[in-house]
Amino acid sequence: MTNLFSTFDPSTNIFNFSLNWTSTFLGILIIPMSFWFIPSRMTTIWITVIKTLHNEFKILLGPYNYKGSTFLFISLFSFILFNNFMGLFPYIFTSSSHLSMTLTLALPIWLSFILFGWINNTQHMFAHLVPQGTPAALMPFMVCIETISNIIRPGTLSVRLAANMIAGHLLLTLLGNTGPMMSNYMISILIVTQILLLILEFAVSIIQSYVFAILSTLYSSEVT
């Protein structure tokens, strides 16, 4: 490793082939095989998770949700979760730590919601720019603030996911690089710390994919 950020460099290659981004598509090869097996405990747990997410997203979308609309957000959650988990394995490229990946997910979703809202519910979208009970003197400022907050939403979604993925991996790398200079006693403490950090990263991977999906659901519920 030439420097600290080389693990996040998508231009690194093997035999002049840039194979880093293939980690994103490994699920296409692995996951479909499980559908041919007798349902295991893992499959049962995953079905339970999907049902729970479906019920939660259905409540958040409100009375105007369309049939099957929750599956868009469940697929989004599953895709981000898989990529976050892939990044936890050693020597596997973390695709969800790049803005080119996270913005590709956030921007089209946000743009489609905004276009749908302004085309079909124009009056409702104008009403959203001024919160209820705002004094007349503050209305111009509130319109500016609400407009800016709407515009930066895809940026905040993508940066939040990418920053959280980078932060944990960098911390693990920094602590791991100090290992050769430590005594045996300190190395044992370092290993325990690394295991605890890995468990934390495992939790962060789940939380960040859930946060991304739940915020996308909330943004979609605002345009109807």
Results as ranks from 00 to 15, higher is better:
residue 55 N to E: 08
residue 186 M to R: 07
residue 34 S to H: 14
residue 132 Q to K: 14
residue 129 L to E: 02
residue 210 Y to R: 10
residue 18 S to H: 12
residue 188 S to N: 09
residue 22 T to Q: 13
residue 131 P to K: 00
residue 100 S to A: 15
residue 80 I to T: 13
residue 120 N to A: 07
residue 178 T to R: 01
residue 156 T to P: 00
residue 62 G to H: 11
residue 101 M to D: 03
residue 22 T to K: 01
residue 8 F to D: 02
residue 142 M to N: 04
residue 11 S to A: 15
residue 82 F to T: 01
residue 188 S to M: 03
residue 168 G to I: 04
residue 192 V to L: 13
residue 213 A to K: 05
residue 198 L to Q: 05
residue 113 F to W: 07
residue 151 I to Y: 01
residue 58 K to I: 05
residue 18 S to I: 05
residue 204 V to F: 10
residue 23 S to C: 10
residue 175 L to H: 03
residue 98 H to G: 01
residue 61 L to I: 10
residue 33 M to E: 03
residue 135 P to Q: 08
residue 203 A to Y: 15
residue 159 V to I: 07
residue 179 G to S: 05
residue 56 E to T: 10
residue 68 G to M: 11
residue 28 I to D: 02
residue 19 L to I: 13
residue 160 R to P: 14
residue 105 L to Y: 01
residue 102 T to S: 11
residue 190 L to A: 05
residue 144 C to K: 00
residue 32 P to F: 13
residue 66 Y to M: 06
residue 122 T to R: 06
residue 79 F to G: 04
residue 99 L to Q: 11
residue 10 P to D: 09
residue 140 P to D: 01
residue 26 L to K: 11
residue 97 S to K: 10
residue 217 T to Q: 00
residue 85 F to A: 11
residue 139 M to L: 07
residue 143 V to K: 00
residue 183 S to F: 02
residue 84 N to S: 15
residue 40 S to T: 12
residue 208 Q to G: 11
residue 123 Q to R: 08
residue 94 T to A: 01
residue 198 L to W: 04
residue 70 T to M: 13
residue 212 F to H: 11
residue 208 Q to C: 15
residue 121 N to F: 08
residue 185 Y to W: 00
residue 182 M to C: 06
residue 12 T to Y: 15
residue 209 S to P: 06
residue 179 G to T: 05
residue 103 L to Y: 15
residue 86 M to S: 13
residue 66 Y to C: 09
residue 48 T to L: 13
residue 40 S to K: 08
residue 50 I to T: 12
residue 220 S to V: 03
residue 117 G to K: 03
residue 101 M to S: 02
residue 57 F to Q: 03
residue 190 L to Y: 01
residue 42 M to D: 09
residue 3 N to Q: 09
residue 32 P to N: 12
residue 152 I to H: 07
residue 42 M to A: 05
residue 57 F to G: 04
residue 88 L to Y: 10
residue 82 F to W: 12
residue 224 T to Q: 03
residue 139 M to Y: 04
residue 224 T to W: 06
residue 107 L to R: 10
residue 92 I to V: 12
residue 7 T to Y: 11
residue 91 Y to L: 14
residue 218 L to P: 04
residue 168 G to N: 09
residue 207 I to P: 13
residue 223 V to A: 05
residue 188 S to F: 00
residue 27 G to K: 09
